[in-house]
Design a protein around this nucleic acid. Structure first.
Lengths: 338, 338
DNA sequence: TCTAAAGATGCAAGCGCTTACATTGCCAAG
DNA sequence: CTTGGCAATGTAAGCGCTTGCATCTTTAGA
């Protein structure tokens, strides 16, 4: 039934040479006479031959494929960085394969194995949190890998990113400087997400530093979705004690909060300030434009690619690199009202 | 030097069974006794074993991997559908590998080869437009594939999606009914993008049907980006002859238009109406919420997965499926002013 | 207790390719 | 006319896995 694809042997037969010669014509043309090579190439063309990757990888023990495992493709958080990552890799002749873990640790391990099994020579990972099994696997197989989207000075693993905690602390500092004291935070779920956790800690740091009580922070966690941001914002607003500033763990939640504010007729930043984190595209187009923390997505993606290529080539990638995440001042943060 | 990875044989030895049993424990657990299976699994874990994909593919002639090639990961258009696609596949034990073509036909072919070479059993493709080489390749290798995000009754290829032309025609009909006559359209680039082209045709259909002149449509094409939508909108608004309605080929362009309107102090829909297409998340959160065409992303992703699985299994997938894309009425479309 | 069917496991032949090593043929130098 | 050396090519052994078939255990009915 299924139309057998031509194999090396078919080509060899047609060209009247051995499979070895065909293989050499394809992979090391100068080790074969021009005349033979031409005949082989003609046969290849006539048969529409293409090498079988599996067999090739099996025999040659190398691929030129890197893998990336991102928590989700459902939003733009990783998109821009990934795009830059891919662009840099393709410059090196490396193909990128992407898998998504849906924020599930078990799935992440599975995807990791799938990618490695398919020949990924190296892996791009997001954040430090993952199961010990994942790390054991990486260690054991000696898979070159780099952690991105975070730079945590307390971790040894090679990484490239920004200090989530520090950035959030800086932002919160500004919020406090504007007089806000009743602060609420809508965070992404922190379980298995060190970046989210760091951001929460950053808020607490800033509060503590001002001599205020970090425990007074009104914190809620919710999965990544606009609707969730909206719902949690509504809950805060309808509680007896309205916060004057709602810090969101990311722009998606903030966008939800903002749209709910509009729906409830709450003026931002007049009645309440809202901030985000990530500076993805929507931050610019929501109304009013969102004050957030700008993350150097492209730079991060490009840098990650370079680190990974170095690692794979057995070169010294150097130390982890810290990028700056700076405050992007727009219009949703104002002085405390009333 | 390089730490040999454990092989099936190593696992077999450690577990005290044959390689066949190990293979079966992994791929068909119920053909092996629970006791044996446990021993095997323990050995697998201890050794950090992961199957060599090349060898596996070579021997089994099947990889349980599907591939998807999407034009871009930079925005949410394909995200939700892809997520649903993946969820459905993982239910079948199939891993999804994603590659992005950056809207480039050459790159698409390259990615296609890469995916297939790495063992994709089947491919999810977006839209019908691609190079003859791509189709020749698919034909030649007999790769099961399905085209999504469009349903075009004039094409024979198996597809799942909605009729872009019909949907856009319906939307435009509503716009005309509201009295708009000076209509402009900001379209995505139509070269190599049948969906964009169909949408433009849909607008013309509606105009023609009313006995008006389709050639009077003021049309501009621009690449996919918020900033481009903003720029083209501005150009229309600053032309001597302001349109009363600006139809955008997708929500991203519409979001740009909307933010520019706000910047220019133009009231939407008071001064000008704006519509989008796709109904991605931002459509709901821009101000005012965008009137657009709702696309059944999840249903499409899920359906595509089912078609593809059937194809791969040699079953009859049935005919192409047409989904409904309905008008999502929000607040950016109003009666013609003045 | 005996026997046959069913279940569990092992054996070994490939899958399509690369590559170390062996062979062949040719040429220049002795 | 040999012969050593080199370039071109062929031979064949795997690479790590799956799977049809053979073999060995159980289990249960007679």
């Amino acid at each position: 039934m299924d139309n057998q694809l031509p194999t090396l042997e078919d080509v060899a037969e047609r060209a009247g040479v051995s499979t070895a010669t065909v293989s050499r014509s394809l992979n090391a043309p100068d080790r074969v006479s021009a005349h033979t090579r031409d005949r082989v190439m003609a046969a290849v063309r006539e048969l529409g031959y293409a090498p079988n990757f599996g067999a090739q990888a099996l025999a040659a023990k190398r691929t030129n494929t890197f893998g990336a495992i991102i928590p989700t493709m459902e939003n733009a958080i990783f998109a821009r960085g990934l795009q830059a990552f891919q662009e840099e890799l393709s410059r090196e002749g490396i193909t990128l394969l992407v898998a998504s873990s849906s924020y599930s640790p078990e799935l992440e391990e599975e995807q990791m194995r799938a990618l490695v099994a398919r020949g990924a020579d190296a892996l791009l990972l997001i954040g430090h949190d993952r199961t010990p099994e994942c790390y054991a696997f990486l260690e054991h197989r000696q898979i070159p890998h780099v952690v991105a989207w975070t730079y945590d000075p307390t971790r040894a693993r090679l990484s490239i990113g920004f200090d989530n905690r520090k950035a959030m602390k800086a932002l919160t500092g500004r919020v406090l400087d504007l007089g806000h004291r009743n602060i609420a935070m809508i965070s992404a779920e922190t379980a298995g997400n060190d970046r989210a956790r760091e951001r929460v800690e950053g808020v607490r740091d800033a509060i503590g530093e001002r001599g205020l009580d970090p425990a007074a922070l009104r914190l809620v966690e919710t999965p990544y979705a606009i609707a969730n941001g909206a719902r949690e914002f509504q809950a805060f607003m309808e509680s007896g004690d309205r916060p004057t500033a709602v810090l969101c763990g990311n722009d998606v939640l903030a966008a939800g909060a903002l749209s709910m504010a509009r729906k409830l007729g709450i003026d931002v930043p007049g009645d309440v300030s809202i901030t985000g984190f990530d500076d993805i595209e929507i931050a610019e187009i929501v109304t009013p434009p969102l004050t957030t923390v700008h993350v150097p997505h492209r730079e991060m993606g490009r840098g990650a690619a370079r680190l990974l290529v170095a690692l794979r080539n057995g070169e010294d990638p150097g130390p982890s690199v810290e990028l700056e995440a700076r405050l992007e001042w727009r219009e949703t943060l104002g002085v405390v009202s009333g």
